[in-house]
């Protein structure tokens, strides 16, 4: 199969998502390789059929139901979380915002959707799942050590960067060890700390995009989640530990 390598790009070509040389290469391929031309036709045909028959149309009364709900929402005196979100953006209020957020559980789910950049909500779900998974297993770690000289080299070749591994036993956060996990479609490093009886997972991977200045806090499924970026690495810490002590660990890292 001489053209096998280009099949991923074929879809992108059909979708008009390629530009420049890549687009030209795909066009040439479709012209010169009958199998590729067929594959492109299949993509188009299936797409047309899905578009023609697969779309599920909303019931006509749904729009009215939503309008009524919105009107009710405006009529109620309950402070809307978007106000909290606006305060949150003022730098001076960030810390206060985090504290308020940690306690106002009722608004938190909305709040997480509201203030976390798109995509992070999905990442958060992955982080929560990975954390729970690690607790369901016999041990949350693949390499055990209270010595960072064992844990750090263990990650060599397993993930594509060298995670920061430090032991904070003297500060009350002993290092249990590390493992590899899978979050947001990639392999990530997980460093596991303990605080009293609580297990803390700290996931890390190379940061993509701008780094938020402050750590963002949330509660998901009863776990405290804290995430931040530092020196080109994105960190997600999660535990049933209280938010204050989570921030303490953040300060150490």
């Amino acid at each position: 199969m001489p053209c096998d390598h280009a099949r991923t790009l074929l879809g992108a070509y059909v979708d008009g998502e390629l530009t420049g040389a890549a687009r030209q290469a795909a066009a040439d391929q479709v012209r010169s390789c009958p199998a590729c031309a067929d594959a492109a036709d299949d993509i188009r045909r299936i797409g047309r059929q899905l578009n023609a028959t697969g779309r599920e149309v909303a019931p006509p009364q749904l729009a009215q139901r939503i309008r009524d709900e919105l009107a009710k929402e405006m009529a109620s005196d309950r402070p809307v979380p978007s106000r909290l979100a606006t305060t949150w953006r003022a730098p001076a209020a960030r810390f206060v915002g985090a504290m308020v957020a940690a306690s106002v559980v009722s608004s938190l789910i909305t709040w997480s959707v509201a203030t976390w950049p798109r995509g992070e909500v999905r990442l958060e779900n992955d982080v929560v799942s990975a954390h729970i998974r690690s607790l369901l297993q016999d041990s949350p770690i693949q390499v055990a050590s209270s010595d960072n000289h064992t844990v750090k080299p263990w990650f060599n070749g397993r993930i594509d960067f060298a995670p920061e591994v430090k032991d904070f036993t003297s500060e009350g956060f002993p290092l249990l060890g590390g493992r590899i996990d899978y979050i947001g479609g990639r392999r990530v490093g997980a460093i596991v700390y303990k605080r009293h009886l609580h297990v803390i997972n700290v996931f890390m991977w190379p940061a993509a995009g701008p780094e938020p200045a402050d750590a963002l806090a949330d509660v998901a499924k009863g776990y405290n989640v804290l995430h931040w970026s530092k020196a080109g690495v994105t960190y997600w810490a999660i535990s049933d530990l209280n938010a204050d002590e989570m921030r303490q660990l953040h300060g150490l890292l």
């Binding site: 599920e56 749904l62 709900e69 909305t110 203030t115």
Partner: peptide, 28 residues
């Protein structure tokens, strides 16, 4: 919502809830 939930009633509920959340977060 329908294609994720595979059920029209659930999809309606999901859209309604999502719109309410989106409204509350619209300022952001």
């Amino acid at each position: 919502a329908f294609w994720l939930l595979r059920n029209r009633t659930d999809a309606e509920d999901a859209v309604q809830e999502a719109y309410l959340r989106a409204f509350r977060a619209y300022a952001t």
